[in-house]
Design a protein around this nucleic acid. Structure first.
Lengths: 347, 347
DNA sequence: CTGAAAGCGCTTACAG
DNA sequence: CTGAAAGCGCTTACAG
C-alpha cells in the first residue's frame, strides 16, 4: 500500500483533470466514452482504487452497515448462539447484495453501546441483534430514535416499541408447536424458558403455548414452567429442576433449540425416553437440531429471509423512506423427537 | 445524525481552538487538565463523536481489519461451515480487544477478490479464511504480497507459501486421531476427504493418517480413501461410496466433523453400528460434534487462540514489524464414537 | 463535455 | 500549553 496512486496520478497519466477522473470513475454521464476509456486504462495500469475515507468524508455517507451483536455476559464465552450466527451469515449476504459493507461489533447487552455508533460516521445504519432483558434495553432504543439514528432490530414485534422491529411470529410458532404436541397425545406439557415480558420473544412463545392449551381445553400449570436463558446448560438445568420438582409431564416445549438440546440430555440421564415418555419440541431450527438423536422437532425461523428484510428496511430508513416493522411466518418442522406411534423421521 | 456536531462546535462551546479540541480528545499530553475537562464536558453536551472518515483520511489509517470469508460455491448456500463461523466469532472478539473494527465480506473463492480490498483503504489489513483449491488461490496471494498488502491467512502452514499463514498442526492431528483408532483395535481405517495437495489442510491430515498407519506397520490402502469436501452431504456420499465398493473397513477417520457426521448417517442407514462395527473420528470439534449420537471423537482446533494469533500477527505486519507463520497444536478429544469396550463418554 | 476551486472534518507540524 | 494553517483524497457545484 506504499506509494498508493491517487486520482491526480490517473489524471496526469490520462492527460485530463482530476475532476474528470473522478467523474469518469463514478460513472457520470458527463464524460465522453473516449475519455472514460483512457481514464479506465490509466486507473487499471496504476492499480488505482478510490480512497473510501476521502470519498465517504466528502459524500457524508459510509456505504457500510453496522451489526451490533449482543451477547449475554453469562453465556459460554467461546460459542456464539448458533441462531445468531446463522442470522449473521444471512445479514452479511444481504448487505453485500445491496452493495454495503458490514461492520460487526460485539456488545455487552448492558453496556453503553448506543453512543458508540450513533453519529460516529462508522456506518449509515445499525442492525441490532441479540438476547437480553428488553426492559433495560428499551430506553437505549428510545435514545437512538431521539438522536435520529437509523436502525432496525431483530426481536419481538409488539405495539409501542421504539423504532423498527423485525421478528418472527413467535406467538403463532409457540401455538403451532404446542398444538402439535397435543395432537401427539401429550397432556402435561412443560414450558422451558423465561416467560415474562422482560424477554418478549420467549414471552410470546409462551403465550402461544398457553393459547394452544386453551384451544384444547387444557390449563397452563405454573408448576410446568421453568426459567431458562437460551443455552444448552440452562436447558439441562431447567429440565433437571422440573424432574426434581416431581411434577408429572409427558412433553416439553422448549423456548429455543439450545434449551431443548439441554433438556434432551437431562431426560436421557434420568431414563426418560424421547419421544415415548416425553415428546420434545424446540424453537429456531438451528442446524444442530437435525443432528441430535432423536432429531428435534422445532419451529423454524427463516434466517435467510430475516437478513434480507432487516437490510431492506434499514436501507429504506437510510434513504429517508418509510420503514415498517414486520413479522415473519414461523414454520413447524416435525422430526422424531415428538412423533409417537408411526416413527417418522424428517430432516 | 442530522446537525452532527463537529470539533469546531466543541471548540466554540469550550472557548478554545479546534486544534486543542482535537488534541484533548485524542489524549495528547500537551493539554492542561483544566482545558481537557472543559472540552470533555462540551463534547458530552453536544453528543460529539470524532468523524472516523475524516480522522482516518488524515491519519492514513482505518482502524479496521477486513475478514474475507471464502465459501465453496457448491456448498449449501444457507449454512456457513460451523468451523468458520466459530473462527469468525473468535476473530471478531480478538479485533475488538485490539481496538479494531472488523469488516466482513463473503467472497467466492474463484472470484477476483484480491483487487477489492488491497489498497482501497477500507481496511489496514486482511484476514483470509476459507476453503477451496489452494493451487488456484496461490497466485492471488502472491499478487497481494507483491502489492505490499498486509494479510494473514488461516490454512495449512507449509514451507514456501506466500505471506503469513496460521493454521493448526494438521499432520499431528491426523496422526493422533489415527493412532487412537488403531489403539481401539481398528486395522482397516478409511480416510474420508480430499487427499491431494490442492487441499493442503486435508492433505496434511491424510499424511498424518498415513504416518500413524506406518507407525503401526500398516499400509494405507487407496481403496479406503474417498474424496469429500467439508459438508455433511459430501461425507454421507463418500461413506456410501465406500460401502458400495464393498471394501471392508472397521474405522473411519474423516477429514472434518461435517464429513464425519454425514458418514455417521450413512453408516446408520446401512446398519453398521458406531463404534462397535466402525469406530469413527472427525476433525475440528465443532459444537455439533458433542451432540450427535454417539458423540464424535475428534481433533480439536483451538479457534479461540486461532483468532488471537491471526489478529496479533496481522497487527505486527501493519506496524511494520516482523510477522511469522505459526502452527497451533491439535488436541485429540475422545468421545463415544471411537471407544470400544468400556463405554466412556466425554463432552 | 471539461477544468479550477471549494470543502467534507479531522490531525499535526510549525510558531509562539 | 495553545492557535493558525496546511493537507489527507476525494466529490460536486460553478463556470465555461
Amino acid at each position: 500500500m506504499k506509494g498508493k496512486a491517487t486520482s491526480f496520478d490517473i489524471a496526469h497519466l490520462a492527460g485530463v483533470s482530476q475532476s474528470t477522473v473522478s467523474r469518469a470513475l463514478r460513472g457520470s454521464p458527463l464524460v465522453s466514452e473516449e475519455t472514460r476509456r483512457r481514464i479506465r486504462a490509466a486507473a487499471e495500469e496504476l492499480n488505482y482504487k478510490v480512497d473510501k475515507n476521502a470519498s465517504n468524508l466528502r459524500r457524508q455517507h459510509t456505504g457500510t452497515l453496522a451489526l451490533l451483536l449482543f451477547e449475554d455476559p453469562t453465556a459460554d464465552d467461546s460459542h456464539i448462539n448458533p441462531f445468531f450466527l446463522s442470522m449473521l451469515g444471512s445479514i452479511t449476504r444481504a448487505s453485500a447484495q445491496q452493495g454495503y459493507d458490514l461492520l460487526i461489533s460485539f456488545q455487552q447487552f448492558s453496556r453503553d453501546w448506543h453512543a458508540d455508533f450513533a453519529g460516529s460516521q462508522k456506518a449509515d445504519g445499525l442492525i441490532l441483534l441479540g438476547y437480553g432483558d428488553y426492559q433495560s434495553h428499551r430506553d437505549k432504543l428510545e435514545k437512538l430514535v431521539a438522536q435520529g439514528t437509523r436502525f432496525v432490530r431483530w426481536g419481538a414485534v409488539l405495539p409501542g416499541q421504539p423504532g423498527v422491529s423485525i421478528g418472527c411470529d413467535n406467538f403463532a410458532g409457540g401455538r403451532l408447536a404446542t398444538a402439535h404436541l397435543i395432537a401427539q397425545h401429550s397432556r402435561r406439557i412443560a414450558f422451558l424458558g423465561d416467560a415474562t415480558p422482560h424477554y418478549p420473544e420467549f414471552h410470546e412463545r409462551y403465550r402461544g403455548y398457553a393459547a394452544a392449551l386453551a384451544d384444547a381445553g387444557l390449563a397452563a400449570d405454573p408448576a410446568l414452567q421453568a426459567d431458562a436463558e437460551t443455552t444448552e446448560r440452562a436447558g439441562y438445568e431447567a429440565a433437571e429442576l422440573l424432574i426434581e420438582r416431581g411434577v408429572a409431564f409427558d412433553a416439553v416445549f422448549a423456548a429455543s433449540d439450545l434449551i431443548a438440546i439441554g433438556a434432551l440430555r437431562a431426560l436421557a440421564e434420568h431414563g426418560r425416553a424421547v419421544p415415548r415418555d416425553v415428546a420434545l419440541a424446540g424453537f429456531d431450527d438451528i442446524s444442530m437440531a437435525s443432528f441430535v438423536n432423536p432429531a428435534l422437532t422445532t419451529v423454524r425461523q427463516d434466517t435467510g429471509r430475516a437478513g434480507e428484510v432487516l437490510v431492506e428496511q434499514l436501507l429504506r430508513e437510510i434513504r429517508g423512506e418509510h420503514a415498517e416493522s414486520a413479522m415473519l411466518p414461523a414454520e413447524l418442522k416435525v422430526r422424531a423427537s415428538s412423533v409417537r406411534g408411526a416413527r417418522k423421521r424428517a430432516r
